[in-house]
């Protein structure tokens, strides 16, 4: 329990982060920025897990461990993503999302 800060404040921040991430995922044109939006979503989830654990269920650590593992898996996901982006950069010399629109409908 963090003194003087109610749980709602954390949850408002994490909700805003989540939806900023979703908006960024849809609006942004640069693939790296899209990847950053995904990381924003995952961090919002981590805040949720940690805050719920700390405020509501402080005697067990399930939320903490979940957050740890989400961080680790996000790193693995980012590494594969960067590999695919580099492959694309070699082909088009930029990483704009407009280039990957060969297949539609």
């Amino acid at each position: 329990m963090i003194h003087g800060i109610p749980i709602q404040y954390f949850l408002i921040v994490s909700t805003i982060m989540f939806f900023v991430g979703v908006c960024g995922f849809i609006i942004r044109r640069n693939l790296i920025t899209i990847l950053m939006s995904v990381e924003l979503i995952l961090n919002a989830i981590n805040i949720n897990f940690l805050v719920f654990n700390r405020y509501l269920f402080p005697h067990q650590l399930q939320g903490n461990f979940f957050a740890l593992i989400v961080v680790a898996v996000a790193a693995a996901e980012a590494s594969v993503a960067i590999a695919l982006f580099i492959n694309m950069y070699r082909r088009f010399n930029n990483i704009d999302v407009e280039n990957i629109s060969e297949m539609k409908y």
Binding site: V22, F25, L84
Partner: peptide, 21 residues
């Protein structure tokens, strides 16, 4: 093929985010 990989990765990352939320 490269396009398919990037699309699958980004969409699955977003969907995992939604699921985890």
């Amino acid at each position: 093929s490269a396009e398919a990989g990037i699309k699958l990765l980004l969409i699955s990352a977003l969907s995992t985010g939604v699921l985890l939320y």
